[in-house]
């Protein structure tokens, strides 16, 4: 799963042709360790239809605070440069899949 930074966020996420799910995480966050493998699998499953990337909030505080991330894991799906779905906290894979499907379909 590609690592996004404050510097590459605009190019990789906001300007992405595909809907892009960003996994906001940090090394100290235990529930993130549950969510990250799940979104990684979804990234492979949705290859060509949606993009999945991660952003370390410790190293990239600007992007995290710009989107009001105050709890991790937070997953935000961006489409055409706009956040369209936010999932806060660890969630079952099906809920994340549904959110991606909705973002692709909308």
């Amino acid at each position: 799963m590609a690592d996004i930074t404050d510097r590459t966020f605009e190019q990789e996420v906001l300007k992405s042709q595909l809907p892009t799910l960003v996994d906001f995480w940090a090394p100290w966050c235990a529930p993130c360790r549950i969510v990250s493998p799940v979104v990684e699998e979804l990234g492979e499953e949705y290859e060509g239809k949606a993009k999945v990337v991660k952003l370390n909030v410790d190293d990239n505080p600007d992007t995290a605070s710009r989107y009001n991330v105050m709890s991790i894991p937070t997953l935000i799906i961006f489409k055409n440069g706009q956040p369209v779905k936010t999932i806060i906290g660890a969630q079952p894979k099906e809920n994340i899949r549904r959110a991606i499907d909705e973002a692709i379909g909308s």
């Binding site: 940090a26 100290w28 966050c29 235990a30 529930p31 909030v57 410790d58 995290a64 009001n68 991330v69 105050m70 709890s71 991790i72 937070t74 806060i88 906290g89």
Partner: peptide
Amino acid sequence: IGRGVSSCAPCDAPF
């Protein structure tokens, strides 16, 4: 919840 309301200090404290 997740916007200033939390039940998990170890998860959210650094924010």
